[in-house]
Design a binder for these strands. Structure first.
Lengths: 203, 203
DNA sequence: GTCTATATGGCGATAGAC
DNA sequence: GTCTATCGCCATATAGAC
């Protein structure tokens, strides 16, 4: 049980993670990954045989990071306000730490959407459970009656989109002031929660 | 003034538009564009000199399609409900006709965000005007007081995201039933409008 | 203007020494 | 396991005939 932190394999994984996350499969070069790992190209193939195989190994890991565990929040015996608030906070925190994830997923999603869906399911996230939870809230009269899928899509979109489209929105709305945009994104933990609650709650 | 519709240059532009839109710059091949245009690769270079130059010529055109003219709606003397409704309908109609545009923009946005912002401005869309319009509504007490940028980002995100993430959402929420998802997207001309109005209107 | 043929360069992948 | 050197392919780009 030697320390694996600085093993060659781990250095490759770390470097490939960084490069693939920023540039995607097509945009990445094996040479660049090798340079970043401080080794040569041949070793990449020695450990992972092909660029495709290396990407697949990294891909699963990136996707896993992209879906934080929300079961505890969504299925808990809490008022729906708290569930929404918890969801928004967890996702915005995750993306603040991993700002390249949303664009990466949207970029690579067409490569194998079925695989991504499988990873989501394996994270224990079951859309049907969330939908039926929302339907119960509607039946109980706490939230407006509507297609529960609308709520899910709107919630996810409101949280993810400003990160995925950050480069454009930053220019259009903040004249390229990056600090102001970061603050704006962070504020959204509160403002998005309010926005959604205003849209769906019956009070 | 001969008819230019079937000129070689136009055939190249049409073919390049289709291929670049679906696959992006990195994912597209000059050979594929030549095949689709019914000519050979050499002619592409004869007319546009390089792949990069050809892409830039097409890029501007794609971006222009992505921002339909909304000045008439946003700046008109209409109640804010009608402005929101008009915006949502125009954008969803545009994306239903050009489903590859959202993913294309998010994919290519990092290549030259400044250029995209310039095209948006050249379309006559002035974010500052929209922001001040929203602020007037807040001062008049028709909509809730909040950062008007939140409204703009939320509006754009709610409209675009379900198209950009269609492959994933289609699996997760509709078990890959594409027809159901198309109907869902079309219904959103109404449901997104309602959702936003509930979120921002004071009544 | 349009074609065929070919040059040029880059990148993934492999061979083989150490 | 790690390296250098090189192969082989594919994609962009050019040369030159027609």
């Amino acid at each position: 049980m030697t320390d694996q932190k600085d093993s060659t394999e781990q250095k490759i994984i770390d470097a490939a993670h960084e490069v693939f996350l920023k540039k995607g499969l097509d945009g990445s070069r094996m040479q660049e990954i090798a340079n970043m790992a401080g080794i040569n190209k041949a070793l990449l193939h020695y450990y992972f045989r092909s660029k495709q195989k290396l990407f697949e190994a990294i891909f699963k890991n990136i996707i896993a990071h992209a879906f934080p565990d929300i079961r505890g929040i969504i299925m808990a015996d809490l008022p729906v306000e708290e569930k929404i608030r918890g969801f928004v906070e967890k996702y915005i925190d995750m993306m603040a730490k991993n700002p390249y994830i949303p664009a990466f997923i949207l970029k690579e999603i067409n490569r194998d959407p079925e695989f991504i869906a499988g990873v989501i399911r394996s994270q224990g996230i079951n859309p049907a459970d969330i939908l039926s939870m929302l339907e119960k809230e509607m039946a109980a009269g706490t939230i407006r009656k509507m297609n529960p899928r609308e709520i899910m899509v709107n919630l996810i979109g409101l949280v993810i989109f400003p990160f995925a489209a950050a480069p454009m929105l930053n220019i259009i709305l903040f004249n390229s002031n990056k600090k102001a945009y970061r603050e704006f994104l962070n504020d959204r933990k509160i403002t998005v929660t309010e926005f959604i609650l205003n849209a769906i709650l019956i009070r």
